[in-house]
């Protein structure tokens, strides 16, 4: 049996354990669909009043629903990562996991794969299904309400928008990797209050910097880490309007960004330390 097999089963067990990964994006998707149904009813009246803006407005719920679902995935990932290497020490089940022929490297890899690969991909799948449902339901509801169905049918170019979504998810996963890796490291280290220990040092340093130097470099760095994937991953100025063409993506600029690679190096360091802590730390 290979390490890949152990990794596969470790990821499956994470999937079984953390139901919120599945539930949260689905709940948001359901809410988005309810909101969209109301939007579709009202859409006919809106078009009559503002014919020039109609297509842009028709596109908004599609990108809005996807953004909310994907954002939910990232937030779920934060809570997941904060508990990932901590929960099984707290309830002592680590002693069971460690009795299986699964290395600490594979364990940490499976727990890193959740917020960086599994959760984002699941959120993408939910977003895609939601958008498909919207594309089918929207025109029907609009027509039934006596409005124009064709605009809602045409508002979402499926193939290009799906490619944009997958690209956006991939660059965010790479860009956010240091955040999740840091949370995993703290969850492997602390004995309590993971999120507090994860964020407190940054608040402390922020206050120190502000008091001692009067600057806010750290705050800007954190803000940049949160939004940087958007500014680095798309062509300059592209974000001022809806992303509808693949030409607005700029992977070359994204992968040339030194901050991407600095972040990834930090992520690898954090994960390596997490493996070491898992291995050397007392079992509990």
């Amino acid at each position: 049996m290979s390490a890949w097999n152990a990794l596969w089963w470790s990821i499956r067990r994470e999937w079984w354990e953390n139901r919120a990964i599945q539930v949260a994006p689905l709940v948001v998707a359901a809410l988005a669909l309810v909101g969209f149904a109301y939007f579709s009813v009202r859409f006919g009246h809106f078009v009559a009043g503002h014919p020039g803006k109609a297509l842009n407005v028709a596109a908004m719920p599609f990108s809005g629903a996807a953004s909310m679902i994907l954002l939910t995935g990232w937030i779920v990932g934060i809570f997941y990562a904060a508990d990932a290497l901590y929960g099984d020490r707290r309830d002592r089940s680590i002693l069971f996991w460690k009795s299986m022929p699964v290395s600490d490297l594979v364990t940490v890899a499976s727990k890193a794969a959740m917020p960086l690969v599994v959760i984002p991909l699941f959120a993408c799948a939910v977003a895609l299904v939601t958008q498909l449902a919207m594309k089918l339901l929207g025109p029907a509801i609009a027509a039934a309400a006596g409005g124009d169905a064709s605009l809602l049918w045409n508002a979402w170019p499926m193939v290009s928008q799906t490619l944009v979504m997958l690209y956006g998810t991939a660059i965010h996963a790479l860009w956010f990797a240091p955040i999740f890796a840091w949370l995993l490291l703290v969850s492997a280290w602390t004995r309590r209050a993971v999120l507090l220990w994860a964020f407190l040092p940054f608040f402390g340093l922020f206050a120190l910097e502000k008091l001692a130097l009067g600057t806010t470099w750290l705050l800007s760095a954190i803000q940049y880490r949160l939004v940087g994937a958007m500014t680095e991953g798309f062509a300059r100025g592209a974000l001022k309007e809806p992303i509808t063409h693949l030409s607005q993506l700029d992977p070359a600029r994204f992968f040339a960004s030194p901050n991407l690679w600095l972040g990834l190096a930090f992520a690898v360091l954090c994960l390596a330390l997490a493996v070491r802590l898992r291995r050397y730390g007392e079992p509990i």
């Binding site: 049996m1 097999n5 152990a6 596969w8 089963w9 470790s10 499956r12 067990r13 079984w16 354990e17 099984d88 309830d91 002592r92 089940s93 680590i94 002693l95 069971f96 996991w97 009795s99 299986m100 022929p101 699964v102 079992p283």
Partner: peptide, 22 residues
């Protein structure tokens, strides 16, 4: 290692699946 270190959230069936898997 001790009594009750099996993960409490897991179903018995899943425990069998997991051990059979790894």
């Amino acid at each position: 290692a001790d009594v009750a270190v099996l993960p409490r959230w897991m179903r018995v069936r899943n425990a069998l699946d997991y051990v059979a898997g790894v």
